[in-house]
Each structure stands twice: as structure tokens, then as C-alpha cells.
Design a protein around this nucleic acid. Structure first.
Length: 876
DNA sequence: GCGCACACGC
DNA sequence: GACGTACGTGTGCGCC
């Protein structure tokens, strides 16, 4: 393999980094900009150059051999700013963590070390790369030695090769020093010849070759004045050349084999980055705490081939391992149980066959601690085993304590609590295509380690939950909800497959015809689904005006295309094509792909521990974004039907739940009054914002007021509002201001919650759900503004999420106590979708609004609308 | 395999 | 006044 040596001019790069970046500092007030820039440069080099050898050279002390020939060398230099000097220690630490050798030599500059080593390396057949911010180094360039000089910032460089130098200066690389001798260097206080700058120097060297040849032939130089100067400062020019010449035979006591680069020390890099607050770099490197330093102590456990009372104790921690992301009808790889009697691994088939296990699992009195209990409940459910008594779910506890923390696997949450005797699933199972189930003994140990960690985590979490006043949220809301979600997921919702197929056929035909029209209007065939190709057709071939560009090209999003609709007939076809294409690929084909063919049902998976606000999310398929706004899309809902003939789909949704929550928490008299009188809130908002009477509210005013309310609920900025209303940001800002004047209680709330968040570092919902917002103190306007909107919005959206979750729990109880067969199948943020036998409709009409409206008591009534019909489409 | 642009819902 | 702006999931494209 070819050898590649990278030599870095440490002082120079640190200087460049320091002046290129703003004066960043970490949480302890230590300045970090030079180290940060240095790190960025180092990371780029390692990635792009992939060196086999590396060295960073530093200047040693204040005086060098150059001072003995010219005492004023580097005189008059500005003192290194203290903000920079203090960072050199960290730069050295950084290099040690990266295991990059560093070197300095008494009496010599970094340049000389680099020069000496680069020549040595070249002789031994290395490819050499020199990195500096100082153009002096370019004199080293040869066919094998490239010199990178930082241009702008720290990572943007010019590569000086002999060819590049020839082209740039018109002289060979080895004449750079002659140029310096003539023109001098103010930064190093090298005098040169007064009156000679770069241009004159180059002109002279092109004519005479070297400095020496020039000085011997000064009489031939054109221009009397120049002749005189050259004569007068002959010796000074020679001296200057000497000073500028890099010493290539410095007594470097550092052999090339000592510069071998073997990779960085992950642990040290992690710790240093943590200390310096380089969180973005940590993420970029994808390294976690002591990833390669994990020392697993031996662990004792028993592989059981049969069950005993010891294994099946109450208060056990249990892992039911399902490796696949989608746990419906998936294999269970193995089971681990940890309790006061010990640690056990149970092969899946033994457990599934065992009546003892079945009984123990289903018995409510046997309390279980788990991680992602919903996954276990559903997976076991498919195998005919009912898992009850799930008392403590560490995944949920971790999410409640801090929804921002990654809840990827047990190792992640365990490490956050200082437990390091468990490996990450990714390490044990692999990732991507290589992911697979390991041998039983490896699996057994992994699962037992996970269970042991959970066992310990439970105690730690209970303490934290109580401390945060979140224990009730955990035990009374999220834990019971997990069971309800498990039941909803297992139940699934029936899909009318033939209906979807016929819709697909119809849409397919329309798409084909639209495609044909588009090709005709474009005058050629292209991929309409490719924004890139579409952009070329619209903005280059058809010459439509470019309204907006994206990072990668022209924007072709719907709102932009709509602005162009009257400019060319192709636009309308493209918009229709997009709309139908989305229906076809996502909702027809996508849905058909995930229907279980034997039952014609889809079983979504709700993620209960993902969103920062407390909402659920839905995947595989996502049943929370089935079309409704446009009629063509809405028809997709005709394919969602009850699982029994003559049953109905019953849908109930909260009316304006977020704004009601806002009225409550902001305690705004005007808003409370509006809801107490059951006013149309958008009309009411329009009346107040536009100062008009009810009968003067135009549909446009109401539309704008609705957008403002939307903005309040979702925490969008004036910019966001301006985009949705297609008005200027200034006007959008005025709307918001007028809104806040009309609802002074809301205004006060918005101000207080931001202060509150600043002081406490987090905001809370009605039921004590937390969201930490550290960015609220950021100095960057954007980051801080976003944090402020988050602070305002999260209690609103999060409390609404709390309320519907509470309603789901109350609903499950009520359906049970009323002995009903109706079932809740889906939750879509503010609505619940049921399937119900016809003879239960009447009672649902009574109890569903009752339960939902009384989930919590606010200063305003909660209002629920409901509807039912033979399909989801009809429940409108 | 991944990031981007786009589009759907609340 | 900068800067890039609610949260999710899924799809196809185009690059590596």
C-alpha cells in the first residue's frame, strides 16, 4: 500500500481557526473556537486524505536560529491573544486523543520540522501532504509533496502543486524563496528590497531566473530607480531569502515510522468533546461513551428447560425478545427472566408450550418489569398468550422522564444511568443487511444482561418519577394506555381490499392519461416524479419564471406550482398527477402491501415514546395521515370498514381541543367566554382581530383568522403564518399582534411560559408531562425563537394529548363496565375511531361524548362531535 | 444505504 | 436585521 504522510502546521492552523470562527465557548466559559476549527480540519483530513502517517508540528519557544542571523526576525508581531493561548493545551489534548503525534524542536520553527520530514518522506517514496495557513510553506511543493493552504475558514484550501504554482505565479516552486527575498514578508518582519512587491519580484524572476542571477545582472534591469534599490539592498535581499528558506536538514529526532497513524482513541475523543461541548461533532462521529471501553463482567444465569416457582416469581423482570421492527406475527427469539431467585433464559418454544408459563404470564398478580411492554404483549398475543401484570415499563419511564433522550434500546437508557453491563442490540445483532439472531448462548447472555439492567433501572426511575411529580402520569396514564394501544394494534382495522384495488385501477388509468397530456405539453417524455427532471422541463425548456429555489435546484412544490398555474396548462396536469400519484403509491399500493391477506386487516404500530409533545405516532401503516381534505383522497376512507357485517365505523373527535386547553391554561377571559358560549371560534377570532361584527365577517377574514388560530396551536412563527396565508411576514406579524391584543390572557401566558421555561429549563403539561428546552437561553436568535415557540406550544399540544389519552383509558373501562362489544380501533390525535354493532350505536352516542368530554375538567367545556356509517368515509 | 423533495394528516 | 422556521410518516429519486 502506498504510504501517505500528512504534516500539519499546528500553530498556523490554530491561528486560522481562531480568527475564522466567532469566539465560541463551552458551558464552563472556556473558549473553544480554535480547538473546534482545528478539530473540523483534522476530521476532514482523516476522512479525505486517509493518511497512513501523520504529524503536527509546533513552533518551539520564542527564539530560533533565524534570530541569530537577524535579531529583528518576527519583530513587531502582535501578541497572541490570551483567548487563543489558553486553547493550545486543548489542541494538544485533542491530538493525543486522536493519537496523532505532535512535535516541536528547540530553535526551529514548525516549518523546518515539516520541511525536513517532507523531504525525508519523499525520498522514501511517500506521498506527502502539508497543511498550513502560511503561504511560505508552498516552497516545499514537488511532484510528491502537495501543500494545502487554507483559503477561507479552515476547511477550504488551495492545493499548491508545482503546476499550480507555475500557473499562479509563473515561476517554479523552488523560486518562491527568491520571491520572498525580494518582496520580504511583513508578518515575519523580513525586510526584502524596499519598493519591491509581489508583481515586481515575479517580473524580475521571470526574466533573470534566480535572485542571485538577478543581483549579478542588476545593470540589465529596466528602470534606474529599481536598479539602485537592488544594488543598495543586495545583502538584505540575500539575508531575506535565507530567512524565508525552510531548513530541510533540521536535527529532527523523530523518525518517519514514529508518525504512523493508527486511528483515534474513541474514549478519549468522547471525553474531550464532552468537556468542550462539541455535541454536534459527537453526533457526526457517531461515538458513544466508552464504546470500545466496555468491560463486561461475567454474569451467571441458568438456561431452563422447564419452569419452576423460582423462575416464575412475582416481581420479575422479563424480556420477550422480538428482533423485527414490526412485531405483529413476528418470531420471538428468546425470553429472559430476572428475579430475586436469579437470572434465567428460556428458549421460546419451551415457554410457548408451557401451561405454567401461560398461567404465570396472564395472571395480573404476577408483577412484571419490562422494556417496551406493548411489543411483548402483542407478540405473545399472536401466540395465544395473554400478558398481564405489566407493572413497570422502563421504556415508558425513560420517555416520561425526558422525551428527548434516545430510547433506542436498553443499553442506551442503561448507560444514561451509569449502567454499562449491557451491550447495545446493534452490537449483538448487527445492523442493516447484516442484522441477524446470534447463537443461543450469545442471545441468552444478552437478554439476561438486558433484564438485569432493567431490574436496576426500575428503582432508579421510580425515584426520579416521584421527584418530578410524574409518578401518577406514569402509573395512571401511560402504563394503562400501553395495554389499550396493544389491544387496538392487535385488533387491527379491516380493509376492503377489492375496493382499494378498483380505486387503484381507476387512478392508474387517470395517471396514464395525465402522463400522456404532460408529455405532449412538454414536447418530450420525462419522469414527472423527479423534481429535478420536472424543474428542467418547467424552468429551462418552457421558460416559466423561477419563484423559489431549493438547495439542489428549482422548487416544484405545490404552492409554487399553483402560482404558475395560469402561465401554462401543463401545471394543472402536474398538480393532478402529483395528487393522484401520492394516493396511488402511498395509500393504495402502500396500504395493500401491509394488509394481512388472511384477515384483510392492517395492524398499525403506535409509537408511544417518540414525540416531544406527548402525542402518539403511527407506523406500518401510518393510520394518522389517511387523506380527508380533498374528496378524491377522502374516498380512501371507504376502504376502512368494520370487521363484522352490519357493524359500523363510529368516529368521535374533540372540537378545538387545543384552543380550549389554551383558554384554560392561559385563563383568558375572552377565550373562556367564547367557548362557554359555544361560539364558532374562527369567526369569533376574525371579529376581534378585524374589529368587525359577526355578520361582517367575510369568508376570507374567517380563513385568515383560522390560520392565526392554527399558528397559535402549532407554534408557528410570523414567517410560517405568512407562508400559509401567502402574505408578507410583516402583515403576518401584525395579525399575531392583533390576536394577542384581543386575547390579553393568552399574551400574558405566552410571556410567562417563556420566562418559566428560562428559569426551570422545561415546560409542563396539565398532567405533568415535561419537555426540556435548553435552547431557550441560546444567543442565536433563530435557535432561541424556536425554543420560545416550543415553550408556548408544548403545554397546549401536550395537554391535549394528555386529555385524549385519559379519555382512552376511561373509554376502555366504560366499554367494559357497560358490557359492550364496540371497540376503539384507532386514535388520530384528537379523535377516536370505533367499530360497533348497530345495536350499540345508541349507547355509544351517549357514552362516547360523555366519557371524552369528562376526561378532565377545564375552565371551559370540552366538546365532542361524532358520526357513524358503514365505512370510515361515511363517519363524517 | 442515505439525504432530499414532496405530500399527507393533526 | 440576520436566519429558517409546528410535528410526524412514507414515497420516489438520485447519489454514493
Amino acid at each position: 500500500m502506498s504510504k501517505k504522510l500528512v504534516l500539519i502546521d499546528g500553530n498556523s492552523i490554530a491561528y486560522r481557526a481562531f480568527f475564522a470562527l466567532p469566539l465560541l465557548n463551552n458551558d464552563k466559559g472556556i473558549h473553544t473556537n480554535a480547538v473546534y476549527g482545528f478539530t473540523m480540519m483534522l476530521m476532514r483530513i482523516l476522512e479525505q486524505e486517509k493518511p497512513t502517517h501523520m504529524l503536527v508540528a509546533f513552533d518551539a519557544g520564542k527564539t530560533t536560529f533565524r534570530h541569530s542571523t537577524f535579531s529583528e526576525y518576527k519583530g513587531g508581531r502582535q501578541k497572541t491573544p490570551p483567548e487563543l493561548s489558553e486553547q493550545f493545551a486543548f489542541v494538544r489534548e485533542l491530538l493525543d486523543a486522536y493519537k496523532v503525534p505532535r512535535y516541536e524542536l528547540e530553535n526551529y520553527e514548525a516549518d523546518d520540522i515539516i520541511g525536513t520530514l517532507s523531504v525525508k518522506a519523499e525520498e522514501e517514496g511517500f506521498e506527502v501532504k502539508v497543511i498550513s495557513g502560511d503561504k511560505d510553506l508552498t516552497q516545499l511543493a514537488t511532484d510528491k509533496i502537495t501543500v494545502d493552504i487554507t483559503k477561507k475558514g479552515i476547511t477550504d484550501v488551495d492545493s499548491y502543486t508545482p503546476a499550480f504554482i507555475e500557473e499562479k505565479y509563473g515561476i517554479p516552486a523552488e523560486r518562491i524563496i527568491d520571491m520572498k527575498g525580494l518582496m520580504g514578508d511583513t508578518s515575519d518582519n523580513i525586510p526584502g528590497v524596499p519598493g519591491v512587491g509581489e508583481k515586481t519580484a515575479l517580473k524580475l524572476l521571470k526574466e533573470f531566473g534566480t535572485l542571485e542571477q538577478l543581483l549579478e545582472n542588476t545593470d540589465k534591469v529596466s528602470g534606474k530607480k529599481l536598479q539602485e534599490k537592488l544594488e543598495e539592498f543586495k545583502e538584505q535581499a540575500i539575508l531575506s531569502k535565507q530567512l524565508a528558506t525552510i531548513h530541510k536538514e533540521a536535527p529532527v529526532k523523530f523518525a518517519l515510522e514514529d508518525t504512523i497513524y493508527e486511528g483515534y482513541d474513541e474514549k478519549k475523543v468522547y471525553e474531550l468533546f464532552k468537556e468542550l461541548g462539541f455535541n454536534s461533532l459527537l453526533e457526526k462521529m457517531d461515538i458513544t461513551e466508552s464504546a470500545d471501553e466496555q468491560i463486561l463482567e461475567e454474569i451467571k444465569f441458568t438456561i431452563v428447560q422447564g419452569f419452576t416457582e423460582e423462575v416464575l416469581a412475582s416481581d420479575s423482570t422479563i424480556i420477550i425478545e422480538v428482533m423485527e421492527a414490526n412485531y405483529h406475527k413476528s418470531e420471538i427469539q428468546g425470553i429472559a427472566i430476572v428475579n430475586e431467585h436469579g437470572s434465567f433464559f428460556i428458549p421460546t418454544e419451551i415457554a410457548l408450550k408451557s401451561e405454567l408459563f401461560k398461567e404465570w404470564a396472564s395472571n395480573e398478580r404476577n408483577k412484571k418489569t419490562v422494556y417496551d411492554g406493548k411489543r411483548s404483549i402483542v407478540a405473545l398475543g399472536w401466540k395465544g398468550i395473554d400478558l398481564n401484570g405489566v407493572e413497570f415499563d422502563c421504556l415508558i419511564a425513560s420517555y416520561i422522564l425526558n422525551p428527548a433522550l434516545s430510547t433506542e434500546d436498553i443499553a442506551t437508557i442503561a448507560k444514561a444511568k451509569g449502567l454499562n453491563q449491557v451491550q447495545s442490540d446493534e452490537i449483538v445483532y448487527g445492523k442493516g443487511a447484516k442484522r441477524c439472531c446470534p447463537d443461543e448462548n450469545i442471545l441468552a447472555e444478552h437478554l439476561v444482561r438486558k433484564a438485569v439492567a432493567l431490574h436496576k433501572l426500575k428503582e432508579l426511575y421510580i425515584e426520579d418519577l416521584k421527584q418530578n411529580e410524574q409518578y401518577e402520569l406514569f402509573t395512571d396514564l401511560e402504563m394503562p394506555l400501553a395495554r389499550i394501544l396493544a389491544d387496538m394494534e392487535s385488533e387491527g382495522i379491516t380493509v376492503d381490499i377489492p375496493r382499494l384495488q378498483s380505486m387503484g385501477k381507476e387512478i392508474g388509468e387517470k395517471l396514464a392519461s395525465l402522463e400522456k397530456s404532460i408529455y405532449e405539453l412538454a414536447g418530450e417524455e420525462f419522469n414527472v416524479n423527479s423534481p429535478k427532471q420536472l424543474g428542467v422541463i418547467l424552468f429551462e425548456k418552457l421558460n416559466l419564471p423561477v419563484v423559489k429555489k431549493t438547495k439542489t435546484g428549482y422548487s416544484t412544490s405545490a404552492d409554487i406550482l399553483e402560482k404558475l398555474a395560469d402561465q401554462h396548462p401543463i401545471i394543472k396536469y402536474i398538480l393532478d398527477y402529483r395528487q393522484l400519484g401520492k394516493l396511488q403509491s402511498t395509500y393504495i399500493e402502500g396500504l395493500l402491501k401491509v394488509v394481512h391477506n388472511d384477515t384483510a386487516k392492517v395492524h398499525t404500530i403506535y409509537n408511544q415514546v417518540l414525540t416531544q409533545t406527548g402525542r402518539l405516532s403511527s407506523t406500518d401503516p401510518n393510520l394518522q395521515n389517511i387523506p380527508i381534505r380533498l374528496e378524491e383522497g377522502r374516498k380512501i376512507r371507504q376502504a376502512f370498514v368494520p370487521s363484522h357485517s352490519d357493524w359500523v365505523i363510529f368516529a368521535a373527535d374533540y372540537s378545538q381541543i387545543e384552543l380550549r386547553v389554551l383558554a384554560h391554561i392561559a385563563n383568558d377571559a375572552n377565550l373562556i367566554d367564547a367557548f362557554n358560549n359555544d361560539l364558532d371560534i374562527h369567526t369569533k377570532t376574525a371579529m376581534d382581530v378585524f374589529h368587525v361584527k359577526e355578520d361582517e365577517v367575510t369568508s376570507n377574514m374567517r380563513r385568515q383568522a383560522k390560520a392565526v388560530n392554527f399558528g397559535i396551536v402549532y407554534g408557528i412563527s410570523d414567517y410560517g403564518l405568512s407562508q400559509s396565508l401567502d402574505i408578507t411576514r410583516k402583515d403576518a406579524g401584525k395579525f399575531i399582534a392583533r390576536y394577542l391584543e384581543s386575547f390579553p390572557g393568552v399574551k400574558e401566558y405566552m410571556e410567562e411560559i417563556v420566562q418559566d421555561a428560562k428559569q426551570k429549563g422545561y415546560v409542563e403539561t396539565l398532567l405533568h408531562r415535561r419537555r426540556y428546552i435548553p435552547e431557550i437561553t441560546a444567543r442565536n436568535f433563530n435557535v432561541r425563537s424556536f425554543a420560545e415557540r416550543t415553550a408556548m406550544n408544548t403545554p397546549i399540544q401536550g395537554s391535549a394529548a394528555d386529555i385524549i389519552k385519559k379519555a382512552m383509558i376511561d373509554m376502555a373501562e366504560r366499554l367494559k363496565s357497560e358490557n359492550l362489544n364496540s371497540k376503539v380501533l384507532l386514535q388520530v390525535h384528537d379523535e377516536l375511531i370505533f367499530e360497533a354493532p348497530r345495536d350499540e350505536i345508541q349507547i355509544l352516542e351517549k357514552i362516547v361524548p360523555e366519557v371524552m368530554e369528562n376526561a378532565v375538567e377545564l375552565k371551559v367545556p370540552l366538546k365532542v362531535d361524532y358520526s357513524f356509517g358503514p365505512t370510515w368515509y361515511d363517519a363524517k
